[in-house]
Design a protein around this nucleic acid. Structure first.
Lengths: 185, 185
DNA sequence: AATAAATAGATGTATATACACGTAAAAATA
DNA sequence: TATTTTTACGTGTATATACATCTATTTATT
């Protein structure tokens, strides 16, 4: 074997053994084996782990691409949606953080950007001066309403499964997250 | 309603209607309703979308926490694992990118960090000088072997489902990703 | 009441993501 | 062969993630 420079991994451009595609627009592939170019999984459980991660990425990517039309990121959209859930009540940063899908999201910083775009307003709570309360602006509501219609449509269109299958999927995912370790300390 | 300062969203610290918890160590909650503090979903399909995103975040977070012990991020681990799949063959950046779970990962930059830690080596392919070929070092192999044992154990421990259930889950996730839109252009 | 502990949220840092663009090299075409 | 197109991949930017730390408050304890 050649040490310096190596043998390389020569192949036809834009192709692999599963066919022709482009890495960066690679959200159309259905089979996990094709998506991550791997056919040998230790077990169905191990494969399920990868499948969950890949499906989440796929879903998030498609929705994010659509949200660009509204100048929103997926996370910014999520914050607006949470605020709408309580509207016209205001919410403090902590309450928003609790409702985020990705719990480690840095909500103050996401709100920074929403505030710059004048989609929300920040003010200090009169009751607890530590709290920052966030209010949706009219602009925020408009953008949210328009984008929500789109996101709901896309989700229904993308997730091409029946309500029954979806119910079953939900059961399995809850089961997946149920382990002895999952006890709130 | 008070405009300036607002009404606030007063509540007992560290509590919500579902019980006591901490947002930042909030990876122990099982029920989606509890996790994102929402009980009303438009449909099972809409709920499945959120469930997939939340479960992926949950899985990724737990594995990432464990990988910290080895000084690796989830993405760096993924790159090492992909390289191991071909070892002792080398791989070019594009081939690694194709196999990533998250296709939009910026592989050159992940490799930057692996190279700094001397877990991989970069060199230019002799066959195609555009290509950078990546080689696992002995250090990379050692860390990967140790961390793989851990990740596999954690995955099996966390994903507390039977092989049969996992198989069914895999089928449903493939079904989820199968839409008319999913045709390679 | 005085002090200690806990909480809310802003902020700093390293890494990753998403995307655009530049450069060098290879492949395709004229 | 000369020119154009495509490809590989490095790099720049804005945003997000993951985590730690700091300050101002509030709550709990003494």
């Amino acid at each position: 074997m050649i040490a310096q420079g190596g043998v390389g991994t020569h192949h036809r451009p834009g192709e692999n053994k599963f066919g022709k595609f482009n890495v960066y627009t690679y959200i159309c592939v259905v089979k996990l084996e094709q998506a991550i170019q791997s056919t040998k999984f230790k077990s169905e459980v191990q494969k399920a782990g990868l499948n969950i991660l890949y499906t989440a990425w796929w879903l998030k990517t498609v929705i994010s691409k659509e949200l660009k039309e509204f100048g929103l990121t997926h996370e910014q959209y999520n914050v607006l949606r949470i605020l709408k859930g309580k509207y016209p009540e205001q919410m403090c940063v902590r309450d928003i953080a609790c409702r985020m899908i990705e719990k480690s999201s840095n909500v103050p910083r996401i709100i920074d950007r929403l505030e710059l775009k004048k989609l929300v307003k920040r003010s200090t709570s009169a009751i607890d001066k530590r709290e920052t309360v966030i209010t949706l602006t009219q602009g925020g509501i408009s953008i949210l309403d328009a984008s929500t219609v789109m996101v709901n449509n896309i989700t229904d269109e993308m997730l091409a499964i029946t309500e029954k299958d979806a119910g079953h999927l939900n059961q399995l995912l809850e089961k997946v997250r149920t382990t002895e370790k999952n006890i709130v300390p």
